[in-house]
């Protein structure tokens, strides 16, 4: 057997029926999740169908401008999602997340396809778009968790920050522990998945490649590469975003301005 078995709509329907079972459970146990579950399922169908419909002609067209445009849209949407997920916000959070994702995810995805896998041409959509998607998905989680922790610490531990400022600390010195804490929080999901990968989980990309007929060792090699790229992108993205957040909540006199941190 070489390629994957082609799926007919009824087969997707059969899998979706299992979600209906969850909905039934939610109604029975009064969890109130059935509506969210239904919306999430419909969104999955619509979004993934659209993605499939868009990618087919994009792959066929082989136009670098089109690929570039799609990548920009992906990065912009991811930065909005990252900012939205954080429970605390600051003025300029979307711009900061965008910069963090461009620096973290954008550069890593380009480096991955152009310099490491050495795809020819480097913008080959079959490689660049799915890789950027995976890196962005993880990167935005890292950024939102990092921002969340960093802003929460600055918000709740103002007295600690003020105490060190009182001894002449500059904003960087005063916020360094908070930045480190934010970076740690942002890195936890990817570190966790790197720890259990292959033992407990078979990641989506490797599963997909195996189903597509790639030999397991080759699929594992790709998975390793993408994990390292994701880890690098998440670390860079989280670092850039928490540094920008820390900078945004101090004023030009180096004073912490807690009123700039808004709870969502």
């Amino acid at each position: 057997m070489s390629g994957p078995i082609e799926l007919a709509p009824w087969q997707i329907g059969a899998a979706a029926a299992l979600v209906l079972l969850n909905g039934g459970l939610s109604v029975w146990l009064r969890l109130g999740l059935e509506k969210t579950l239904a919306i999430a399922s419909v969104r999955s169908v619509v979004q993934l169908s659209l993605l499939g419909l868009v990618l087919e002609p994009v792959f066929a067209a082989g136009n670098p401008w089109l690929v570039g445009g799609i990548c920009i849209v992906m990065v912009v949407l991811a930065s909005r999602a990252a900012a939205k997920r954080s429970s605390r916000r600051f003025p300029g959070i979307v711009r900061s997340s965008l910069l963090a994702l461009v620096v973290g995810a954008g550069s890593t995805a380009l480096l991955g396809t152009a310099a490491i896998i050495q795809v020819d041409p480097w913008w080959e959509p079959r490689y660049l778009i799915p890789m950027l998607g995976m890196i962005l998905g993880n990167g935005l989680t890292g950024i939102s968790l990092g921002l969340d922790r960093c802003l929460q610490q600055l918000d709740e531990h103002r007295a600690q920050v003020d105490a060190i400022l009182a001894f002449g600390a500059d904003p960087w010195e005063a916020s360094r522990p908070v930045v480190a804490e934010g970076l740690r929080a942002g890195m936890i999901p990817i570190l966790n998945s790197m720890t259990v990968v292959g033992l407990v989980t078979i990641p989506g990309m490797m599963t997909g490649q195996i189903l597509g007929g790639t030999p397991p060792l080759q699929a594992a090699a790709y998975q390793m590469l993408i994990l390292f790229l994701i880890a690098a992108a998440t670390a860079m993205g989280a670092l850039v975003s928490v540094l920008l957040a820390a900078r945004a909540v101090f004023d030009e006199t180096g004073r912490l301005r807690p009123e700039r941190i808004q709870r969502a």
Binding site: H157, A159, Q160, D162, A163, I164, A166, F167, G168, A169, D170, E173, P177
Partner: peptide, 28 residues
């Protein structure tokens, strides 16, 4: 012109760690 709060915050670590952090500030 150094301010000391009425209820000094609970920092991470010990007062000794806090002294070390203050001693290593660029302004000191």
């Amino acid at each position: 012109v150094l301010f000391v709060a009425q209820d000094p915050p609970v920092h991470p670590g010990t007062p000794h760690d806090w002294v070390e952090r203050v001693r290593h500030l660029k302004a000191q």
